[in-house]
Amino acid sequence: MKTAVKLFARARDLAGTAMLELDLSESATAADLRAVLGEQVPALQLILPSLLIAVGNDYAGPTTRVAGRTDLAVFPPVSGG
């Protein structure tokens, strides 16, 4: 299924967009999302292992389900302050 993912900071710059539509399976986890991201957006492979995945307002672990969510975001380690 087509799933929208927001991008921020360097991830957005490398992908050239603030929002991606990824084709994810109906049982997709955050680990699957990361793999699909690398396949569909080769420019992100450079920082793929360090990218954080958020589901809603929480950080996802590798097994967190992302299928069917409308509030996904992907971004590099944070540097506020």
Partner: peptide, 19 residues
């Protein structure tokens, strides 16, 4: 907290800070 800073260096280059 998901906030990021981008450096604007004096040599004109820019760079995201991603620890």
């Amino acid at each position: 907290v998901p906030i990021w800073k981008k450096e604007n260096w004096s040599d004109g280059s820019t760079e995201w800070v991603h620890p």
